[in-house]
């Protein structure tokens, strides 16, 4: 039981490490948020399940922790991305389309 828990905690930590690596390797803010949000969410879930197996008496609290992470992590990344876009954060050269900027321009064009 403890062995399984330790392995799960290790997998969670590896996911965290890869998400940190993604922050360095991705070219612009939006892509960094992508790696940051998803990997930390699954990393926290797997790490917490591992801790549940090692310390069964913490299960209730860890389940609540997972719920809060899953509910709030996407919201905070959404807010950061939205704020970045409206403050004019540049997107990388590889970007193939930007519907949000076009939409805003359309709005300004029609009084």
């Amino acid at each position: 039981m403890e062995m399984t828990g330790a392995v799960l905690a290790l997998i969670g930590s590896i996911i965290f490490f890869l998400s940190a690596l993604g922050l360095i390797r991705m070219p612009d803010l939006y892509n960094r948020i992508q790696t940051g949000t998803k990997a930390t969410t699954l990393g926290t879930i797997i790490l917490s399940i591992g801790l549940c197996l090692i310390h069964p008496e913490w299960t209730g609290k860890l389940v609540i922790l997972i719920l809060f992470i899953v509910l709030t992590n996407p919201i905070s990344s959404h807010v950061v991305a939205r704020g970045a876009h409206y403050s004019g954060q540049e997107m990388t050269d590889k970007t193939v389309g930007d519907a949000l900027t076009e939409e805003d321009k359309d709005k300004e064009g029609t009084p």
Partner: peptide, 26 residues
């Protein structure tokens, strides 16, 4: 989808050349 998305992102992060083709779509 959550598990699939993590594998997807991890493969992108560790691949030698960062394969991305980003866009904001409606």
């Amino acid at each position: 989808e959550l598990i699939k998305s993590n594998i997807d992102v991890m493969l992108r992060v560790i691949s030698p050349k960062v394969r991305i083709n980003p866009a904001i779509v409606e």
